[in-house]
């Protein structure tokens, strides 16, 4: 009885470690080696469209609404202390440091990550990856690599757009609706937001999240059991694992960047 439990624990541990290993081997195979820009560039553009441009709408809408809600909530609290002037920094810092990178990563995992896992899993199930390999074309270089780079490029850009739209959304509610002075909204923001400390750190966070989400999504797809059930499980796992890992890393990065 106890030995069975021990055995299960051992097997789960070994499987997990082997999964890490396989994902590392996959990424290594995809990224290491001489890049071929003549063939690679059009593929990258195509994936930037699929991964980046197609995620733009959900990012714009969510950013706008989250900025609006932040302003509304922040205003009720700040006005109790007569500190409505601090609404700008509140909205800007929340978005730049936390919500921009994190919410973008979560939305990205749901929108683009799950799609990538399903796409690659299906390519595996329909023997397209195998077929490519038999045509002497490395699927890691042809399929995985452009998707990886497109994701890593897209996500920080999406996070920037999200944050900018959120700040405008905060302006819309705070200034145009609740009557905070527009000048003080922007100037208090400028007095409290630092380009390196806040903006650049937010972008760095977003890059780390991009690597996490896209790596998990690609690995889950590439490693999926090639059946309809396996692919659906892999897709769910991508969203859950990527989201949790992002939140975990967010805590670590926040502690490193702003905690000291």
């Amino acid at each position: 009885m106890i030995t069975t439990k021990l055995q299960n624990l051992g097997r789960a541990t070994i499987d997990t470690i082997a999964g890490f290993g396989r994902s590392g081997v996959m990424l290594f195979g995809a990224l290491v080696g001489k890049p071929d820009f003549r063939k690679g560039f059009p593929l990258l553009i195509k994936q930037l469209y699929v991964i980046g441009v197609l995620s733009l709408l959900i990012i714009l809408v969510s950013g706008l609404f989250i900025g609006m809600v932040l302003a509304l909530q922040g205003y009720t609290v700040l006005s109790k202390f007569g500190a409505e002037g601090m609404l700008g920094p509140l909205v800007a810092l929340s978005l730049l440091r936390e919500l921009g990178p994190v919410v973008t990563a979560l939305l990205f995992a749901g929108r683009a990550g799950s799609a990538l896992t399903a796409e690659i899993g299906l390519m595996k199930a329909t023997e397209q990856l195998s077929g490519m390999e038999m045509m002497a074309v490395d699927p890691l270089r042809r399929i995985i690599a452009p998707r990886f780079w497109a994701g890593v490029i897209s996500m920080p850009l999406l996070a920037l757009v999200f944050t900018a739209v959120g700040i405008l959304g905060g302006h819309l509610i705070g200034v145009d609706w609740l009557g905070v002075d527009s000048g003080s909204y922007w100037s208090a923001m400028q007095a409290n937001v630092d380009l390196y400390q806040d903006v650049v750190n937010g972008v760095i966070k977003s890059m780390v999240f991009a690597v996490i989400v896209i790596w998990i999504a690609l690995h889950k797809g590439y490693d999926a059991v090639p059946t309809s059930e396996g692919i659906s499980r892999a897709t769910t796992q991508t969203v859950v694992t990527a989201s949790l890992t992002v939140l975990g890393f967010d805590f670590i990065l926040t502690a490193l960047m702003f905690g000291g």
Binding site: A92, L96, L157, L160, V161, T163, A164, V165, I167, W186, M189, Q190, V193, D194, L195, D198, V199
Partner: peptide
């Protein structure tokens, strides 16, 4: 978006 964040916000 980056320019806005860099110039108008920060």
């Amino acid at each position: 978006a980056f320019l806005m964040l860099a110039l108008k916000v920060a």
